[in-house]
Design a protein around this nucleic acid. Structure first.
Lengths: 193, 193
DNA sequence: GCTGGCATGGACGGTATATTCCAAAACGCG
DNA sequence: CGCGTTTTGGAATATACCGTCCATGCCAGC
């Protein structure tokens, strides 16, 4: 019986995600969102709730559609070490090829919001933990396969590698220099043993 | 001849720095600043200009009084490696002992503002380059002194170490877990050779 | 094709925000 | 003490912002 929506909620959410990614949370107004999403104000509020819940959904979408696939792709590489290398070179390629210097929405949001938005912090922390766990698995398998030196604690190496990745995303906001990012990625792999 | 100021501009700027550090740029209103700094609105504008220039001065102050001294202190340690270790353990101690999870104003500002404020980006980049240069010097001297393995490029190692440091500051915003931060610091030193 | 019900457009309200203005007050100096 | 200069308090302005409301529009089923 009801009238059907004149917009695709999923596509609209993607637009919101992209805008928050480019501008951050506070710097993005609801008017900006209305324009970018091509959705009427009332429909936006009816569909996504207020600005905070829209942001939460945009961040969730970012994690699910941008970060998670990269993580899963590491399992499909020819070897554990190849998976790690692939992850890092995708990061380098993305950062170097982003003239807008958006960086990573998760890192940006952690810096801007984590200290006053526990829910946001928890979402990002969960993803960070998943990354770290997967890195640890890959490192352990690479050690077992003799691709890197055995003996060092995979969990500790994974924590360090995750820090390097976050650090690279910060650096990409200042100067997305491809050569330097590649140098960091290479040093990171070398540091695993 | 003129009437003298009723406030200490330096102390007021410190208060502004602390507020921006805690809340970020966009989330801090001029009203917040007026209250926190204990300065009249008109005096604030007359002394520091508008909100953007006040922020720039606060960030400059942060770099000069918080970051730069830590960097210089690395030269006073007993050895190059001790300087590096000292820098990292100060970072761990500060991050773990910050219940407000403010993180680092420079990293926070890079994530929030760098893509749309070239001046801010340049200020932070300059400091990041100085850190990297000093790390490279320390690494080179540690190699020469036989404290770490020689042969690896000090500049590349310094870039990696700087990334780890930024990554630790991001992580501190999500979960300032002392043991994990210490683990990262230890792995970082081990990764130098 | 009528009707119930949701979606939509655009305006609206109230508040917050950044910045300016002005009159009054305070200081240093002659 | 008085004068000129500057600071100061607080009001004022203009805009921006978030969230809501209502009249209109549109769709699905009977």
């Amino acid at each position: 019986m009801p009238r059907s929506k004149a917009f695709d909620p999923d596509a609209a959410l993607r637009k919101a995600m992209q805008l928050f990614w480019r501008q951050g949370y506070e710097a993005t107004s609801v008017d900006d969102l209305v324009q970018a999403m091509g959705v009427n104000r009332a429909s936006l509020y009816a569909t996504f709730g207020d600005k905070r819940s829209l942001f939460r959904r945009a961040l969730a979408r970012y994690i699910a559609t941008v970060l998670a696939p990269r993580l899963e792709a590491t399992a499909d590489a020819g070897s554990p070490l190849a998976g790690l290398r692939g992850l890092l070179s995708e990061l380098v390629a993305f950062s170097a090829g982003d003239p807008q210097r958006r960086g990573c929405l998760a890192v940006n949001s952690a810096c801007e919001l984590a200290s006053r938005e526990p829910e946001i912090a928890a979402m990002i922390k969960t993803q960070a933990d998943a990354l770290e766990l997967q890195l640890a698995r890959l490192i352990a398998r690479a050690q077992a396969a003799g691709e890197i030196a055995a003996g060092r604690d995979p969990a500790a190496l994974a924590r360090m590698l995750a820090s390097i990745i976050d650090g690279m995303r910060v650096r990409a906001k200042l100067a997305p220099d491809r050569a330097q990012l590649e140098s960091i990625a290479a040093s990171a792999v070398a540091a695993l043993g």
